[in-house]
Nucleic acid binder design. Sequence first.
DNA 1: GTATATGCAAAGTCTTTGCATCGTT
DNA 2: AACGATGCAAAGACTTTGCATATAC
Lengths: 138, 138
Amino acid sequence: MDVREDVGERLRDSGYRMTEQRRLVWEALHSGRHLTAEQIHARAPQVDLASVYRTLALLERLDLAAPVQLGDGVGRWELAHADDEFHLACVRCGRVSHHASNTVAQVREHLADFHGFVPLEVDLVVHGICAECSALAS
Amino acid sequence: MDVREDVGERLRDSGYRMTEQRRLVWEALHSGRHLTAEQIHARAPQVDLASVYRTLALLERLDLAAPVQLGDGVGRWELAHADDEFHLACVRCGRVSHHASNTVAQVREHLADFHGFVPLEVDLVVHGICAECSALAS
DNA sequence: GTATATGCAAAGTCTTTGCATCGTT
DNA sequence: AACGATGCAAAGACTTTGCATATAC
């Protein structure tokens, strides 16, 4: 699953060049999830913000990274991963965790079986109060 | 379910004033779903764009309208509705439809029962190919 | 009459683009 | 050596804010 070593190869295979900037952005993406362009830039200050955006767009085209919309209107990015994971966003502490389940698969089946809609990407974000914050509040 | 008549009352009850601009935005929201601020402004040209934004923020505070994130990075709005409806966005023709099912309820239960996370809002958007476009492609 | 809401214009934020230079292949 | 990628700065899209005027109550 960790393709950190051969991004260069992957890029070259697709006709792109491997550069220090792209490597730094790629590494930054490994340091967290649902990161804003600004956060990635903070983790790779040598890379111009414009290049961060350009690199993210490229990685998206190659299905190596994916944009995330948590509903706060801020553009966020993370490494591509199976979309049977979804986000749990705590409205109290702001932390966002990932959660894997068969829920997304169920949604897919439900749609395909009954409605003729062919699901490609399922984006599921649940806002609520995480276990830690619930405990504090009681 | 149609509270069109008593928005004024609702506003006044909450300490706000009923104005022609707010009425126009409110009506515009009834003319479609997942509308951008620009689209609402087009449907109510007499209302300044800034007031459109201010009114939408107010309606959101009163739970009369809700922002929608379809994943295209564009801010969209619609009348508040039960969140067991979710969006189906066709990546081919761009049309977005609403779909109601118990899927969202299942997600809520799943989380509450097993993970201590108290779900508040569930945002589910499915990107894919609608039945019409599937038919055309075959 | 008073306080809130509006219009207009300016400022903010986030993202994209143009272009000369640099660096990978 | 050639062409793609980068930095920098400017432009763009979208949204918010300040302030004087208008308006609901």
